[in-house]
Write a protein that binds this DNA or RNA. Structure first.
Lengths: 347, 347
DNA sequence: AGGGGTTCTGGAAACGTTTCCGGGAAACCT
DNA sequence: AGGTTTCCCGGAAACGTTTCCAGAACCCCT
């Protein structure tokens, strides 16, 4: 009975009709009502369900899309993945998660592995890009949408955001609040986001105090934040605001501020970036520049979808604008009302 | 050149040998050194990479494992998925993420869809279970590992944890600290975790004040936490500790406590559950009962792996013990030193 | 009534791979 | 030197599906 799955051939035999007619009857091609009825009945009796592999082999289509990222645990990527899944699933596509690894060579390797044909396309978020990677992407025959840097000039579909501009928005927001001695806590400068954000701060607030954390983490951030705050103070010009390159770094700044007895946002206003769940839940809730992770995910998925359906148009390059979300860490009157429902935890 | 991917047949032609020899030469079967050399060269020239679909069809093996969960955005599940991926990827398995939906019927439907054969097995985290679901799981021919309730009695492989005992540990910890008026903030009682945790508190601390939040979220938690704290106070016996069913609810309690001017952990000690990144990063960092999400993920992946390799032994039922992690929210001397490196965010 | 068109059906090929099987050559042993 | 084992290779089948092609039946119209 449930010994081994029923195949289409068995359904055909059971219904007493040919294999081709059976396929048509089930798949909707030209078939008489009587035929459809017979085949349906036979299929139901045998508990038939079509084999995805057989179908894929014939149709050259897997109905799978890869989502590749350096670290699947990162909240920003998680949000993106959820959005991608939400777009793709209703269209019958499955999402395969993959890891790019840390280096550009391992990423390149991953891209090359797409030739295996286990997937109809891939949404890639590379930490860094180099020529070899771009080259590999170009000569790939399975479509890839790159999230990160705009790569239209290389003929690649891409979805990006302008974090440089995002930092500028944070600075302007603090200026409007009357803050003048604004510091900047950045992450490593050899990363794409680190570089972009540094440019943003340099352009928006020349001569401000700057510190660089060894990593985009709270732990590394606290160390650097202490230096940043101390430096301003010893110069007799204590900072009254800090722009952090990241929500986690912003949290680090707040921790360091508390150590020094500073109130947030009273003595020190702090902004983060990425608008993560962390920031929303933290106390004080974080003013943060949203880079639209979910929206970028949706955009990438949308492109992927049309690519997977075979609509190879001109290369598409979408940019979603950053958006400032004001909360308690800069505005004491802000209400913590936008805490998202973060659903159940595991049984 | 890059027109269409080279097939094994083309490699065979190029090398001037038969198809079967080509396969053997590449896959390691009995083949002479000379043969291997010729085929390798031909394959390299043509840039051949084997087609995963063709291979799957023949070998009846997809090298894919599904991970199904109600909400992919949930940090607990994310941690689990990361662990699963980490175990499976080195063995050549890909991870497909799927959504169970909210209801047990949609979950059952998902399980049935496994008959499609697009995956070698599935790791399932059902929100709730009912007879139909268990029935569907039993008559599935593709192996499923259930994370949640122990289901060994039904002949199903499962990985579980004892959150009832976990709550008891939190209560005992607070007792040891000298706290006596301990309240409990739970989530919805019609969920598996809600029920288990309620049992845990009832058993460990009879007669304690209890409130139920409408959801396992900070927003819902704050509302319920206010009631909980107010109730104790009006009775002239203000609480000196609260056990929360969740890290998010614990954060809610801390918020509510601050509103009332209470210090944490001075006036009120608070414990959470799940040991999430949120709790580690929050200030004060959260004492929390770890339910070993990562470890459960690893265990489930391990079982899955042996199942996928065909080792169908007796049904396996693993239980990972809860573990209390003490941090600032109950112990003011605890150092926030265990903040995990949470890596980069997106460019 | 016969020709042209439409509708439905069955046979067969194709997708790309692995593996069973048989044959031939070489090596080994007595 | 003859028989037996070992080793290596090519032919062919199989996995489960979709789709092309051709033929049969039927209807409609003149």
């Amino acid at each position: 009975m449930t010994s081994s799955r029923a195949t289409l051939i068995q359904v055909a035999e059971r219904a007493g009709v040919s294999l081709s007619s059976t396929s048509r009857a089930l798949h909707g091609g030209g078939a008489s009502a009587a035929m459809v009825e017979r085949v349906r009945a036979a299929a139901a009796e045998l508990g038939y369900s079509p084999d995805a592999i057989g179908r894929s082999l014939r149709m050259k289509k897997t109905f799978q899309v890869a989502f590749a990222v350096a670290d699947i645990g990162n909240p920003v990527y998680v949000e993106m993945m959820a959005a991608i899944h939400q777009v793709l699933a209703p269209h019958g596509y499955r999402v395969v998660v993959m890891s790019t690894g840390d280096t550009t060579t391992s990423t390149t390797e991953l891209v090359r592995s797409l030739s295996g044909g286990f997937v109809d396309g891939m949404i890639l978020v590379p930490l860094r890009t180099d020529d070899a990677l771009i080259q590999a992407l170009r000569e790939q025959e399975v479509p890839v949408v790159v999230v990160g840097r705009p790569l239209g000039e290389h003929g690649l579909d891409s979805v990006s955001t302008d974090s440089t501009d995002g930092i500028a928005r944070a600075v302007n927001h603090l200026r409007e609040l009357g803050r003048r001695r604004i510091g900047f806590l950045n992450g490593p400068l050899d990363t794409t986001p680190g570089q972009a954000r540094q440019r943003g701060f340099d352009a928006a607030h020349q001569g401000g105090a700057v510190e660089v954390a060894e990593d985009f983490t709270v732990a590394a951030g606290v160390v650097a934040a202490r230096r940043l705050l101390a430096a301003g103070e010893t110069q007799g010009r204590p900072l009254d605001a800090v722009v952090a390159a990241n929500d986690l770094l912003a949290i680090a700044v707040i921790r360091a501020a508390r150590e020094r007895g500073l109130t947030v946002p009273g003595d020190l206003a702090v902004t983060g970036m990425d608008d993560t769940e962390f920031g929303r839940v933290f106390q004080p809730s974080l003013t943060s520049v949203s880079l639209g992770s979910a929206e970028r995910g949706r955009a990438a998925a949308g492109i992927m979808l049309s690519l997977a359906e075979g609509h190879h148009e001109r290369t598409r390059q979408i940019e979603v604008g950053p958006e400032l979300v004001v909360r308690e860490s800069t505005d004491p009157t802000a209400l913590p009302d936008d805490i998202e429902p973060l659903s159940l935890d595991s049984p």
